[in-house]
Amino acid sequence: MHALHQVYRTFFYPHSFRLSLPDVWAGFQLNIKMMVIAEVLVLVLALALAIVRGLPGPAAKPLRALAIAYTDFFRGTPLILVAFIIGFGVPGLQLGFISNQHVIVYGITALTLVYTAYVTEVYRAGIESVHPSQRAAARSLGLSYAQTMRYVVVPQAVRRVIPPLLNDFVGLQKDTAIISVIGVGEATQLAQQFSTQNNDFPSLVAAAVFFILLTIPLARFTDHLVAQRERRERAQAF
């Protein structure tokens, strides 16, 4: 009984919970902000990068190589290192405007750089999954390469990759916590401070609950999309 009580006091003590909640909630709003901005940027940049990687012909080779180098680099580097390098390194450069941004801007930049690399691969898989005969049909009608991508290939690719894409975004949501290491007062950091001051952990549990509550709807939505697609494909097969 004593041990159970210890667990209760340490992690779930309602008083500490209540006391920490306003701070943790305030911090969590920063997580949401970083997440939303980074996700929008990632969606656009990753698509651009995936298209560059698929450009045909020898003339586009340097561009393709650059896109490959980018994904290799940022998929291979832990987010926490990218956060340190951007968050502490860029202000140190003293480059005027670029070096005088709020720390949250560096956090969003680090998240965007890393997740763009992941999502580029997701988009690329989607683009490659569109059957070559679709491109042949579009090009045969006199559409240019760019028009074929814009109206025929990319719309089909995006539809197919929405579930894995949302999955990556669950990861991004959680990884906003890592941005605390460069001094962004988001939920994890404020909860951690509260926990140190009071020598207990309900504040951290509260932060965890916020993350979970944000993730569950997205996960269920992803499941729903996958199930819907399976239903449709089965309907088509018969």
Partner: peptide, 23 residues
Amino acid sequence: FQAYNLFPHMTVLQNVVLAPRKA
């Protein structure tokens, strides 16, 4: 083509008007 290759994400009408409109 043998396999029709209609664009599955577009309606019949959209399939037919795409190229005339864009190209």
